[in-house]
Structures are given as structure tokens and as C-alpha cells.
Design a protein around this nucleic acid. Structure first.
Lengths: 188, 188
DNA sequence: TTCCTTATTGAATGATCGTTCCAAAAGTGA
DNA sequence: TCACTTTTGGAACGATCATTCAATAAGGAA
């Protein structure tokens, strides 16, 4: 057929994610992307379209990975609450790296329809998993039954944003740990 | 002496705050600032220095106002917990507008030393007020005494970030209200 | 009024922005 | 080896970026 690519799209995308999560959309230039991704300018545009499309692809991939990691953590442990704790612990542990999801919301809000759809898909996937786990934990008597599972799912997502912003602002590991504990304490 | 200014620095700064909180630092151009502030380009540079200095001044003024509003809310009501509730309610109520503090942390992290100092000052002012109020509420029996007041202060700040990010992502008023309630529930 | 100082206005600066054109390079199937 | 198709690298595009220069305008002190 024709000449094959010399790079892997997903690996290049991971490099782009690394730049975007640190510098944001507006703070990232095409030159920075080319340097980090290790590909030519034209290759970038051939493979990903323009900068906005690349950003959308980066957020999509990042969100999917992040959602998958959350769901994997949820499945660990014996009791349902153990999985929930594992999910919170993971967020606390990895809060040192900026979250592309949080930063994307902070920077762009809901002004990009394409981005809204990407977020809605990830949100739905994560939320349904959390709701199921919360219901199980309530059946176990580990989460108060007067709480609406859907509200609790919103609570977790918001708490994670809070923890990540705190970390990005320079909070210590101890403080972040306390935040994770209080997140769970609200559900007793 | 000489010709006086035709505009008020603080009013112009408020206009700049309005642009920065919506579009971020990198997403805001000098032209957007000139248009919003209603002053000439040269006047902007004469009065505020370069774009970074103007941003610092905007964050400083915004943080001071925000801290003051929090402290004012804390002082309302009979019991200490009433003031705390008022502070949380205010955040929930006004979460519709993007927070320059949260967005600044999300976008820039701790990479600007000057900005770090501005944040530290506002943080200290807010935190000491919260700590005192929490101690009073603990004495009243309205907040669990096994919680460290300083940790609780960190908790409030992080929760506010979470609520504001949720709002910026499109969360409904009902969801935001639930988040405010859960923030307090963690302290029982 | 006259002078002095500062504010204002608008054009212009070089740099960098995102994006594209174009020619050379290179792998694949015949 | 040849022809075909796609990738690749680099120069180039107009637009916009933050910032400044130069000239005019305007108020206060004498």
C-alpha cells in the first residue's frame, strides 16, 4: 500500500496528555506538543486534526483511563466499602499529578459541546459504578441508608476535584489523606 | 501637578477579574482586557504593569474580597455552627460564577512564586477565622471534638473547590446543595 | 496664561500563534 | 525494480500575541 507511520497514535496521545494536564489548553503551543510527542508538525495535523481535536482526543483517552482505574479500584476488597476506600485512596495517592479532567473543567467550563459529550460519557460510566457500589455498601450497613446513592456519586466526584485542586495548590500528603478520610466520614 | 486619571484602578481591576475568572490567564488577551476594562492599552500598562502583574493584582483583590465575604458569613447567626453553615451556603449559592482562586490553581499550579504568596496570605486569613469558629462550634457540641480544627479548615477549603468545580462542570443547584450538606455532615 | 507632568490615543514593534504548502523520503504490492 | 501512496521535515503563511514608541491631549501649579 503505502508508507506506514513511524509512531503509535496512543503513545503520542499520552505525551500530549502529559503536556495538556500540566499547562492547560491555552497554555500549550503546537511547538510544545511537537516536542513532547516526538513527531513532526505535519504528522500531528495528519493524525489528530487541529489542536482542539487533539485536546478532545487527549481528554477522551485520559477520562477513559481514569474511569477505568476508578472502577478497577472499586472492585477490590471483600466488602463493598473496601472498594470505595480503595478508590478514594488511589485519588489521594495520585493527586500529585494534575488531573486533566479537573483542569479542563476549570479552564473551559461547559463552553465546548464536544468536550461536554466526552465528559458526560465518562461521568455516566463512573457514576453508575459508584452507585452500584454504594447500594451494596448500604446493604452491608457501611454507608448510611438515608443517603441517595446518586447524590453520593456526585459527592465522590466533587470530593476528588477538591482533593486534586488542594494537591495542585501544594497541600501536603498528610492533609490530602485527611481529606480522603473526611470524604468517607460524611457517609456514615 | 499633572493630568489625573479618567478611570478608577479598582473598577478597572474588577473588570479584569471578570475576564480572567471566565477565560483564565492564557485564555485572556490584552485586547480582551482593554475592551472589558474600558481603558487604553497604554493606560493598562502604565497602571498595572504587564499582563502577569495585572493577573497577580486581580487574584490578590479577588482573594481578599472572597476571604472577607467568608469571614463575614462566619460571623452571622447565634451559634458558631450557624456562621459555618452560612459560609457553606454562600459558596453553594454563588458557585455559578467561576472562582478565580480555583481556576488560578488549576491553571498555574504553584509555578508562580508571586502568586503563591498572594494565595498564602488569603489562605492564612481564611484559615485562622475558620479554625476559631470550628473550635467554638466544638465547644458548643456542634462539631465532633475528635477532629483537628486545622484539618477541618483544610476540609472546608477543599470542599469549596469541589463544589465550584462541580458547578463549573454544569452541576444543578440541587446537586450543589447536597454537596454543601455533605460537607457539614462529615463533621458530625 | 504658561509650564510641567502625566494620561491618552493609535500606530507599530518583533515574536509567537495555529496551520498549511511543498518537495523529499520511504515502505508496500506488483 | 517500478509505481503508488502516505509520511515526513522544513519553510512559509497570515493572524494575533504582549508590549512599546511617539505624538497629542489635558489638568494643576505658577
Amino acid at each position: 500500500m503505502a508508507r506506514p507511520k513511524t509512531f503509535d497514535d496512543d503513545m503520542a496521545l499520552d505525551a500530549a496528555i502529559g503536556v495538556f494536564r500540566e499547562h492547560g489548553y491555552e497554555g500549550t503551543s503546537a511547538q510544545m506538543l511537537v516536542d513532547a510527542m516526538g513527531i513532526g508538525r505535519q504528522s500531528l495535523y495528519n493524525s489528530f486534526g487541529d489542536k482542539a481535536a487533539l485536546y478532545n482526543a487527549a481528554v477522551r483517552r485520559y477520562s477513559r483511563n481514569e474511569t477505568q482505574a476508578h472502577r478497577a479500584a472499586l472492585r477490590t476488597g471483600d466488602r463493598a466499602i473496601d472498594g470505595i476506600r480503595a478508590m478514594v485512596d488511589r485519588v489521594v495517592r495520585e493527586a500529585g499529578l494534575p488531573c486533566l479532567g479537573v483542569n479542563s473543567v476549570a479552564e473551559l467550563g461547559t463552553s465546548w459541546p464536544a468536550l461536554n459529550e466526552i465528559r458526560a460519557a465518562a461521568d455516566h460510566s463512573l457514576r453508575t459504578a459508584i452507585v452500584a457500589q454504594v447500594e451494596a455498601a448500604q446493604a452491608d450497613g457501611d454507608i448510611a441508608v438515608d443517603l441517595d446513592p446518586d447524590t453520593v456519586a456526585t459527592w465522590f466526584v466533587a470530593s476528588f476535584s477538591g482533593i486534586r485542586i488542594a494537591a495542585r495548590g501544594g497541600a501536603s500528603a498528610e492533609h490530602l489523606k485527611s481529606l480522603g478520610e473526611l470524604t468517607l466520614r460524611a457517609l456514615r
